[in-house]
Computed example of a mutant assay.
Amino acid sequence: MKGAAHPPYGDLRVGDNGEGATVTNAAVSDVRAGEQLLHELYTALRSAASPTGSNTTNTSMLITFDEHGGTYDHVPPPSAVPPGTGETSEMGFAFDRLGCRVPAVLISAWTAPNTILNDPKHHSSLVSTLSRQHGLSPLTARDVDAPNMFDAINLTTPRSAAQWPQTTPADVPIDNDGELDPKAEANKTKKLSNPAQGLLGLLIAKFSDPSAPVPDSYEDAYDALTELGGGLFGTTDPA
């Protein structure tokens, strides 16, 4: 992946007149790099032509988002089937409600142009679709209730890839001076976002030494994951 689409996080610097605030010492982050990645994946699918393996007639591409980007949603989140029974979280949240609406795009030769699905879907719809397509057991009670995405497959004859639209991504700035290289010395001290710090802290506390300091920079995070990675992502049981 060439870059992340998350807004940059770093030190806030405000201009002399109190305006023109900018983020400095930020992590590498540019939504244009994310668009470039999607363009490359879509183009690879559009040009896939293997007669026996993956190709445009037997492969679908689903683009989903886990955040709504802060855009106001005038529709209250609806109720939903909880994944399990009796589960509660902070402030008594019972996982019985969906969140804000997020976009999703399905790309398939079996989908008619300009298809828009207005029926409610949610993230478990993908799991539900894959489970039913391949005869797999559902993961949770929410998957059982989730509406599948087969209604997006609405053609009886696949569209030729020549009829698919061509995409042109935004220009991604050229890194002539190495400023965007995550391995560059200057980038090692860039600050982690609060969610990243919190996640690392929880993982370290649960699977390693609870007294270990919580990383606050990319370099510290790398050192912590390198040292404690066996406990975080692998097994500490003897072979």
Score class of each variant (00 low, 15 high):
residue 176 N to T: 13
residue 48 A to Y: 01
residue 90 E to S: 12
residue 160 S to T: 12
residue 234 G to R: 12
residue 147 P to L: 05
residue 210 P to V: 08
residue 147 P to H: 03
residue 85 T to H: 10
residue 88 T to M: 04
residue 110 W to V: 03
residue 25 N to G: 13
residue 57 T to W: 08
residue 87 E to Q: 14
residue 123 H to P: 00
residue 52 T to F: 03
residue 188 K to P: 00
residue 45 L to W: 15
residue 57 T to P: 02
residue 25 N to V: 00
residue 166 Q to Y: 08
residue 68 H to Q: 07
residue 112 A to E: 14
residue 221 A to L: 11
residue 56 T to L: 04
residue 57 T to M: 07
residue 232 L to Q: 01
residue 103 P to M: 05
residue 27 A to M: 08
residue 4 A to W: 10
residue 17 N to V: 02
residue 161 A to T: 09
residue 75 V to F: 06
residue 46 R to D: 07
residue 189 T to V: 05
residue 95 F to E: 11
residue 100 C to G: 05
residue 102 V to T: 13
residue 52 T to H: 05
residue 143 D to H: 08
residue 209 D to F: 06
residue 239 A to H: 09
residue 40 E to P: 01
residue 220 D to A: 15
residue 177 D to R: 10
residue 235 T to V: 08
residue 230 G to L: 05
residue 156 T to Q: 14
residue 167 T to H: 12
residue 46 R to N: 07
residue 49 A to V: 01
residue 187 N to K: 10
residue 7 P to T: 06
residue 109 A to T: 13
residue 86 G to A: 10
residue 134 H to A: 11
residue 208 S to T: 10
residue 79 S to A: 15
residue 151 D to P: 00
residue 236 T to L: 15
residue 212 A to I: 00
residue 52 T to A: 08
residue 106 L to D: 03
residue 166 Q to N: 14
residue 2 K to W: 12
residue 98 L to T: 08
residue 205 A to N: 06
residue 32 R to E: 10
residue 99 G to F: 02
residue 18 G to R: 09
residue 133 Q to R: 14
residue 175 D to V: 04
residue 124 S to C: 07
residue 221 A to K: 06
residue 215 P to N: 11
residue 11 D to Q: 13
residue 154 N to M: 08
residue 223 D to S: 09
residue 201 G to T: 03
residue 218 Y to V: 04
residue 98 L to S: 09
residue 18 G to S: 09
residue 55 N to S: 10
residue 152 A to N: 00
residue 95 F to Y: 15
